[in-house]
Simulated scan of single mutants.
Amino acid sequence: MKITGNTVFIPGGTSGIGLGLALRLQAAGNTVVVAGRRAALLDEIVRDHPGIESIVLDTTDPDAVVAVSAEVQRRWPETNVVVAMAGIMQPEDVLTGGFLETAESIVTTNLLGPIRLLAAWTEFLQSRPSAAFVTVSSGLASVPLPITPTYNATKAAIHSLSEGVRVQFAGTSVQVVELVPPAVRTTLLGQQDDPSAMPLEEYLDETMALLESQPDAHEILVERVKFLRNAEAEGRYADVLAVLSGGH
């Protein structure tokens, strides 16, 4: 993926890694359109960061994904990069059936959302030169955090999805890039003050550097995530799972 000269659409770009990446990409010389559910928050972002564009989108609404994607394609016809950033992470207690509503919400946001975006954008992106569809998985796709089982499962599915569609896009103009964050200091699961999580700006620094130095990369793996990503290959899986299990 080239690092500059793109028009980038980022559903889920209103906070955390999504907003940070949007601002870094804008600073690198890209036109950036962020999307999210809350119009007031989008207005605030546009006001505070001149040049950022915005549009309201709830990626859990399949009709909205189709309609808003079509509007973005009409208003910003140079769009050649889509970053499927929107995601939620919530703990679940599976010892009773009450977790099901939470699990279904996580699947809808984290897995169906990116799949619906892919369906809405696949033909358009193939018409654009130097295009990219960027997915966001997690180090927890490789070793699960037991208190968030459905989140882990959706991120493992996103990894597999990325691998599969990358093969199908071979020979087209569309590159599939998978961001694989470790725990990062954002509000996701209340990690903004977690000293064991990676500072957001450090994650963004390393991610942007990797995108620039590895334009053909399939995965963007910062050093901190390799503790999880390489655990099974290095024979550390059981030990890492035990660490993530804590008192369980």
Rank of each mutant, 00 (worst) to 15 (best):
V8A: 06
V8Q: 03
F9Q: 00
L23E: 10
R24W: 04
L25I: 04
Q26L: 09
V34S: 02
A35Y: 07
R38T: 14
G51F: 07
G51T: 09
S54W: 03
A70D: 15
V72W: 02
Q73I: 14
P77L: 08
P77H: 09
T79P: 03
G87N: 04
E92R: 03
D93V: 12
V94W: 10
S105D: 13
I106W: 02
V107L: 15
V107T: 13
T108P: 00
T108Y: 00
G113T: 04
R116H: 14
L118M: 12
L118Y: 12
T122C: 09
T122P: 00
L125N: 02
F133S: 01
V134N: 03
V143K: 02
P146Y: 10
Y151I: 10
Y151K: 10
A156L: 12
F169H: 11
G171R: 11
T172F: 11
V184G: 02
V184E: 02
R185P: 05
T186K: 07
L189V: 10
D193G: 04
D194F: 05
P195C: 11
P195T: 12
A197R: 08
E201S: 14
D205R: 13
T207E: 03
L210I: 15
Q214Y: 00
A217M: 06
A217G: 08
H218P: 00
Y237I: 05
V240M: 06
